[in-house]
């Protein structure tokens, strides 16, 4: 079992609708292998066209090069289904993304890759962002089992996470293997369905 605890430096990008094209532009998605997607993360925000870093971008400053936890505005990861967006975050070293809402396909992709996407209330996201902005190098403590994010002992926020996804994170579940334990049910469905809807199978 993996540790339920994620602890580390938190950065904030308090903007809504950060899309997966922004997280990783499409030209960095092709002809590239894991774990080399880190250089592509927030490519246009992090780098100038000639490849030099933009010094003003948060993740290019210390201590945020070691960011483990990212707090963002609502609808983080909206847009394209590219799983490379999650790979870029993971390859950079991000273990947890916190936002009031997530693009749905991105959200699913996170848990396929051991990345915690923690859904919090808008007010919690705002408070977390402000705390991060006020204290350089602020460390957050996240607990997957307890579904909590702690700034300090007195400032604790709850996040939403269902049991299946928490199990995926804590036990590195292999979803394909898990589904294949249902193979009898799948075969039974196909057998019944062939009689019920013979027109579905193309000829």
């Amino acid at each position: 079992m993996n540790s339920p605890r994620i602890s580390g430096i938190a950065a904030t990008l308090p903007i809504p609708d950060i899309d997966t094209d922004t997280i990783i532009p499409i030209e960095y998605c092709i002809n590239r292998d894991r774990p080399n997607f880190d250089v592509a993360l927030f490519r246009s925000w992090r780098y100038l066209d000639d490849g030099d870093e933009r010094p003003e971008f948060l993740l290019n400053t210390d201590p945020y090069r070691n960011t483990k936890i990212l707090v963002a505005g609502a609808n983080f990861g909206c847009g394209s289904s590219r799983e490379m967006a999650v790979w870029a975050l993971v390859d950079f070293g991000i273990k947890c993304v916190i936002a009031p809402s997530f693009g749905e396909i991105f959200y699913d992709n996170c848990f396929q890759n051991g990345l915690l996407a923690a859904r919090v209330s808008r007010s919690a996201a705002t408070t977390l962002s402000q705390a991060i902005e006020q204290t350089i190098g602020l460390t957050l403590e996240v607990n997957v089992s307890e579904k909590t994010i702690c700034i300090s002992k007195s400032e604790i926020f709850q996040f939403e996470l269902d049991n299946l996804r928490s199990e995926m994170l804590l036990h590195d579940l292999d979803p394909v293997a898990a589904t294949l334990t249902q193979i009898d049910a799948i075969e039974g469905f196909e057998k019944r369905d062939r009689l019920r809807r013979p027109w579905v199978t193309p000829h």
Binding site: S80, S81, I105, D108, P175, T179, L180, I186, E190
Partner: peptide, 30 residues
């Protein structure tokens, strides 16, 4: 591909998925 929602226009229940789920469908059809 996220724009798989398009074909809901003909009364299909359709949606876009990530790479891991593409592999899941290839292996299990579910």
């Amino acid at each position: 591909d996220s724009h798989t929602c398009s074909v809901g226009a003909v009364g299909t229940l359709s949606w876009g998925i990530g790479t891991s789920d593409v592999a899941h469908v290839l292996a299990t059809q579910t």
